[in-house]
Amino acid sequence: MIRPKQGRTALLFIAPSFIPLLMFFVIPMISAGVISFTEWDLLTPPRWVGLANFQELIHDQDFLLSLRNTLLFILGYLPLVLILGLSAALALDRKFRGSNALRAAYFLPVITSWVIVALLWKWILNPNGGLVNSLLAQIGIQGPGWWTSKSWSMASVIIPSAWKDMGYVMLLLLAGLQSIPPEYKEAAAIDGASKRQILLKITLPLLTPALFFVLVISLINNFQVFDQIWVMTQGGPEGSTSVVVQQIVKNSFDYGHMGYASAMSMVLFVIIMLITGIQLRLQKRWVNYE
């Protein structure tokens, strides 16, 4: 059946989302690119400065530090969340009494907001009277300053982040595990393969697409990390946990350097697009859906 053109009807159906999409996504995205070539304090008209903002960025110690910190955060967070999430998924892959309740329990932190997670852990890691240091004191160890200490602040924000996201990683990996046909494992078991061999030679290799997918999603999300760090340390002490998004917020809303902050946004955008690009390229080779 050849259907008539339904242009007018389609317009009515699409406009309610397309107009806001243009106003609040497309135009701001293009503006971010344009503003990054200007100097603009919102009080006087923007002034075109070409690549000056980007040239300044390369020498901006605060920005470079925030890039380094973001990478450091990811380097600490990723292995932790992947190992925890993978262990949980492997442990809960089989059904047993209480396995559903445990899955639900592992997932509870995922739906809790970052602000609550950050406040809760800030209290647990409080240097004086916090749970962790009090317990350490019981066995005669003087606990570190956690989020008040320059050398422990990064660990203090990584631990709650992995705690909150672990359940999500588990969920995605469980879906990956369940898509592995049970015949493979059964066949291997009949051939006399040990549990360990099955895990290393069958389960994990077949899980690599799911692991890769989780890795990419985590990378994309965590280059934009902000909420929990802002609540726990505000980027401190001494900039030891300042991250890229925080530099964007600080330069735009505190200093009124809209052009400079937009240049930072564009750098962040390029990083995320590169990761997405790598994913799209490798996805064809790694992942076979269904």
């Binding site: 397309f18 996504f25 701001p28 995205m29 503006s31 934009q224």
Partner: peptide
């Protein structure tokens, strides 16, 4: 266009979005 905007991280457009709202 819809698919492309799915890839825009909110953190990247927060500055122009604020200016627009202003």
């Amino acid at each position: 266009v819809y698919l492309a905007t799915m890839m825009i991280p909110f953190q990247v457009i927060i500055v122009p979005l604020f200016i627009e709202m202003r």
